[in-house]
Nucleic acid binder design. Structure first.
Length: 554
RNA sequence: GCGCCUGUAGCUCAGCUGGAUAGAGCAACGGACUUCUAAUCCGUAGGUCGCAGGUUCGAAUCCUGCCAGGCGUACCA
C-alpha cells in the first residue's frame, strides 16, 4: 500500500522538477509513514525535511511545492497538507481503501504475500541440536523462531528450504553410546562407575531398558569395542526419533535432515580441506591442523583437526556450508543459541576462505530462555540432567501458548517464560486475545447464517455503507499486513507479526463493542460481514505464519 | 582484558532503522453484559527512555566514555 503512496510522491517530485520549482539532483529515498494521530491523515512523509539540505531551502517551502503537485493525485487523494516543521500529510479517499480491501478477499490464503524476496534461494538451518538427549525449552525457542522465519520469508517471496544438521559423528556420540552401555550393565546388576561427563538423564536408562527387552543380556559379556557401536547406533537413533517427534508435535517440520556423517563418507570434508590447503588457508602447527581464519577478521586461527587426529565440529561445518552453496543457495541463515555467538566471525571467515562474500552467511542469534513458575526461577542444567524439556513445556501449556511466548519477543532479548502464566486461561495471558477475536468473528458469521444472511461475493459487494472511523481504521490495519510481513522478512524479525496481530485485533475488539455487525439494515450487515471476512483472512494468515491455530470457538 | 546481546511505567515487553505529545499487555483504581461470546470494551493513574557527554532543524534510536546484568573468549558442542 505504501508503495502506491511512494509512486504518488515520486510523480509529484517529477512535476516539480520539470517545472523548475525543485532541483532534485538525485532521487531521494521516499519514506512513507503512518502519522501517530489519525486526524493528521492516513500517510505522511518527511521528504521535505530531508530535501532541505540539498535544495538549500526551508523545509516548509519545499513541502508547499510538493503538496501543490500531490493534490491531483489521480483522484485517490482526498486531502494533502503540511504540518509542523515540514511533514506532508495525506488523506486518501474511501475508494482508495475499499478497492484494496476487495483484493484481500480475492487473495484469500495468499493475502500478505509479496515478491520482495525476488525468489532468492535461502537455506535456513535451525535447531540442529546434538542428538544426545531430548530438546529443552531453549531449543524450543529456536525451533519456533526458525520455523516462523521460514514461513515469513516464504510469504515474502524468498525461495526457502529448511534443514536440521544432525551431528551424528564425533566424541559426543561415543559418550552417548557408552552412557547407554553403562546403564545397560547397571540394570544387570553389574557394578559400574558412571562418569560425570556422561549423559545423566533418565532417558538413557529408558534406551538401555529397550535394548534389554529386545536383546536381553546378549551384550553383557561382549568386549566394549564390540558392544559400543551397537549401543551408539541404537541410542542415537532413539534420541533422534524422539527429537523428530517432539518437533513435529510442536508443528515444526524440516525440508531436510542433513547427516554430518555423510560429509565424511563422501569425502566432502577431505576435499574441502585439501582445497583450502591448496589456497594456503590451512596449515599445520603443534601437531594440529589450523584454518587461517584470522586472515578474515576472526580473532584468531581455529583448529580443525586436533592433535589426536579427530576433526573438530567446526571442520565439518566448513564442508557443510560449502555443500549448501554447491546446492545453489544464495543465502545461508543459521540460527544459533546466544552461547554460540563466537561462531559467527569464524563462519564468515569460512565463507571468505571458500571464495564467497562473507555476508552470504547470516547468523540469527537467539538469546536464552529463563523458565519461571509463578515468578520463581526454574533451575536448568544439562549436565546433571535437570532440564525442562520442550515436550514437558508443550504438554503443560500447549503448542499455541508456547509458540506465542517464543514468538512475541525480539530474538536478541532474553526471554522470561512463565509456565504458570502461559497456562492460565485468564486475561493475564495475552495468548488468547488474538484467537478470541477469530472465534468471535466466526460466531458473528454463525449468527448471520442463522438469520439467513450470506457472506457477499467480491464481485457484487457494496461497501459504501462502511463509513465509521473504526471501520476505516480496521481496513487500514488489514491492508498493512503485507508490509509487516515484508519488513519482518527483510529484518528477519519474527516478533513483528505477533505485535501486528495484537494491534489489529485490538481495533476489532473495540469496533465489536461499539457497533453491531448483524443488524436489520441488510446492506450495512453485508458490508460489515465482508469487512470481517477480510479481517478473518488476515488473522488466519498471520496466525498461520506463527504456527498458531485459529479456533472457531472458544 | 577483549567481543556479542541487553538496560524504556511496579512487572513483561514494543517503539517500523533519526521525526510530531515515548506506546501495549499485566498488576492498581473507576465504569460497561435482557442486544452477534465480558478470554471483551471504555476511562483514570503510572516515565530523569541506566548515567554523562557529543553529532543536528530534531536522539529512546547514531558516536564516545562510564555503570549494571547475561553470554562468550577451548585441540567442547
Amino acid at each position: 500500500m505504501k508503495h502506491v503512496i511512494e509512486q504518488l510522491v515520486l510523480s509529484a517530485l517529477d512535476k516539480a522538477k520539470n517545472n523548475g520549482e525543485l532541483e532534485i539532483a538525485e532521487s531521494p529515498e521516499i519514506v512513507i509513514e503512518k502519522p501517530k494521530d489519525p486526524k493528521m491523515g492516513d500517510f505522511s512523509t518527511n521528504l521535505a525535511m530531508t530535501l532541505a539540505k540539498p535544495e538549500r531551502k526551508n523545509p516548509r517551502a519545499i513541502a508547499e511545492v510538493i503538496c501543490k503537485y500531490l493534490k491531483n493525485g489521480g483522484g485517490q487523494v482526498e486531502r494533502v497538507d503540511m504540518a509542523g516543521p515540514g511533514f506532508i500529510n495525506l488523506k486518501m479517499t474511501p475508494s482508495f481503501f475499499i478497492s484494496r480491501l476487495l483484493k484481500v478477499a480475492e487473495s484469500g490464503e495468499d493475502f500478505g504475500s509479496s515478491t520482495v524476496g525476488k525468489g532468492q534461494k535461502v537455506l535456513v538451518e535451525y535447531v540442529s541440536a546434538n542428538p544426545t538427549g531430548p530438546l529443552h525449552v531453549g531449543h524450543g525457542r529456536g525451533a519456533a523462531v526458525g520455523n516462523t522465519l521460514c514461513n515469513i520469508l516464504q510469504k515474502a517471496g524468498f525461495d526457502i528450504k529448511s534443514e536440521y544438521y544432525v551431528n551424528d559423528v564425533g566424541n559426543q556420540m561415543n559418550i552417548l553410546g557408552r552412557s547407554t552401555l553403562l546403564r545397560y550393565q547397571e540394570i544387570h546388576q553389574k557394578s559400574v562407575e558412571f562418569p560425570e561427563d556422561h549423559y545423566q538423564g533418565d532417558y538413557i536408562k529408558d534406551i538401555a531398558g529397550e535394548i534389554i527387552e529386545k536383546h536381553g543380556a546378549e551384550y553383557l559379556d561382549k568386549p566394549e569395542e564390540e558392544a559400543l557401536p551397537f549401543f551408539r547406533q541404537v541410542a542415537a537413533h532413539w534420541v533422534l526419533e524422539g527429537i523428530k517427534k517432539d518437533l513435529k508435535d510442536f508443528r515444526v517440520e524440516f525440508d531436510g535432515w542433513f547427516s554430518e556423517k555423510t560429509l565424511y563418507d563422501d569425502a566432502s570434508v577431505e576435499n574441502a580441506l585439501a582445497w583450502l590447503r591448496d589456497k594456503g588457508y590451512v596449515y599445520d602447527k603443534d601437531g594440529a591442523v589450523w584454518l587461517k581464519s584470522s586472515a578474515f577478521q576472526d580473532d584468531k586461527d581455529r583448529v580443525i583437526v586436533k592433535q589426536n587426529g579427530d576433526q573438530t565440529y567446526f571442520c565439518s561445518d566448513i564442508a557443510y556450508h560449502q555443500n549448501k552453496i554447491n546446492r545453489g543457495f544464495e543465502h545461508l541463515i543459521d540460527l544459533f543459541g546466544a552461547d554460540h555467538h563466537g561462531y559467527v566471525p569464524r563462519m564468515q571467515a569460512v565463507m571468505q576462505a571458500l571464495g564467497y562474500d562473507r555476508d552470504v552467511f547470516k547468523a540469527l542469534l537467539v538469546q536464552f530462555v529463563s523458565l519461571k513458575r509463578g515468578g520463581e526461577k526454574v533451575a536448568m542444567s544439562t549436565r546433571s540432567g535437570e532440564f525442562v524439556t520442550l515436550k514437558e513445556v508443550v504438554d503443560e501449556v500447549g503448542v499455541d501458548a508456547a509458540r506465542y511466548f517464543f514468538l512475541s519477543r525480539s530474538c536478541d532479548s532474553h526471554l522470561d517464560f512463565d509456565l504458570e502464566l502461559a497456562k492460565k486461561e485468564t486475561p493475564e495471558n495475552p495468548v488468547f486475545y488474538i484467537q478470541y477475536a477469530h472465534a468471535r468473528i466466526c460466531n458473528v458469521f454463525l449468527t448471520a447464517q442463522n438469520q439467513g444472511v450470506k457472506v457477499p461475493e467480491v464481485s457484487d459487494v457494496d461497501l459504501t455503507p462502511l463509513v465509521e472511523d473504526e471501520e476505516f481504521a480496521l481496513i487500514k490495519n488489514i491492508l498493512a499486513f503485507t508490509e509487516v510481513v515484508e519488513k519482518s522478512a527483510l529484518a528477519k524479525e519474527v516478533h513483528r507479526i505477533s505485535h501486528y496481530l495484537h494491534d489489529l485485533v485490538a481495533v476489532f475488539h473495540s469496533y465489536y463493542n461499539k457497533h453491531r455487525v448483524v443488524t436489520e439494515n441488510e446492506s450495512l450487515t453485508l458490508a460489515r460481514l465482508f469487512l470481517l471476512h477480510c479481517l478473518r483472512i488476515t488473522i488466519r494468515n498471520g496466525l498461520a505464519l506463527m504456527g498458531i491455530s485459529a479456533p472457531e470457538k472458544m
